[in-house]
């Protein structure tokens, strides 16, 4: 089948601001949007720039705005997107070229909330054991692939780029509620700051956007409740 792709193009060396261009792609209805983009890049216009790596919805490289909603290009089928399909880069981050944005501020926030095990007790001989119940507590937030679909769909983040954003907080949640971790206090103290968790307005865009089906807003509320129980 023939589909029309309206793709936002931006070449920093030539263009002052981004614009849309239309391309025809010859694809199967069961092909993914990524296949359609590959068709354009390989057979129509090789200068089109976008990120992709595993192409199986796990590396988190090809997040983009598809018909106005944040999706992974490798996880949506062409037949589900209508015709024409509008493809634009994620909002809020600096454009580098076409669909590629600068992700460095995103990862800076991720690192700022210490997404690693903080354990002050001496390492045990074999491993730090955990009961299945304790493991289940943070199961949902282990599924994050750091694609930034949630953070760049978040209206408070659009309004204020200093907000940590849902993705960083999801990854803090993964350790705050891990029974082997002792860093909850310092992470929660950071999240209680001006640009911390309280910038969340419970819009639910993050939950809607997550390609991994993480209940992002619920995780955010989990963190708010933890702060309430600790500080009040």
């Amino acid at each position: 089948m023939q589909v029309t792709l309206r793709i936002q193009r931006f070449d920093p060396e030539r263009d002052e601001k981004p614009h849309f261009e239309e391309y025809q792609a010859d694809v199967e209805p069961t092909d993914r949007l990524l296949d359609a983009l590959n068709y354009v890049k390989w057979y129509v216009d090789g200068s089109l720039a976008y990120r992709r790596s595993c192409a199986h919805g796990i590396c988190g490289s090809d997040a983009m705005r598809v018909n106005g909603r944040n999706r992974l290009a490798c996880k949506v089928l062409v037949r589900d997107l209508g015709n024409p399909i509008t493809v634009a880069p994620m909002l809020s981050f600096q454009l580098i070229k076409d669909l590629v944005v600068d992700m460095e501020p995103f990862f800076a926030k991720y690192r700022a909330l210490k997404p690693y095990l903080i354990a002050d007790d001496p390492p045990p001989e074999k491993e730090r054991l955990q009961s299945p119940v304790d493991r289940e507590r943070y199961e949902d937030t282990t599924k994050c692939i750091l694609c930034a679909c949630c953070t760049t769909s978040c209206p408070p983040f659009w309004a204020n780029g200093d907000f940590y954003g849902p993705a960083a907080i999801v990854n803090a949640h993964r350790f705050i509620f891990d029974s082997r971790d002792h860093g909850a206090d310092e992470r929660l103290a950071t999240l209680n700051e001006r640009n911390g968790i309280w910038r969340c307005r419970t819009v639910f865009n993050c939950t809607e956007a997550c390609p991994r089906g993480i209940k992002v807003t619920e995780a955010m509320e989990d963190v708010k409740r933890a702060l309430m129980l600790r500080n009040i």
């Binding site: 700022a112 210490k114 903080i118 860093g183 310092e186 103290a189 950071t190 209680n192 700051e193 001006r194 911390g196 309280w198 708010k224 702060l227 309430m228 500080n231 009040i232």
Partner: peptide, 14 residues
């Protein structure tokens, strides 16, 4: 590890 600034609980109460 970097430490958070001591923040008030104003937003929490709000």
């Amino acid at each position: 590890r970097p430490q958070a600034q001591t923040a008030s609980n104003f937003e929490l109460w709000a």
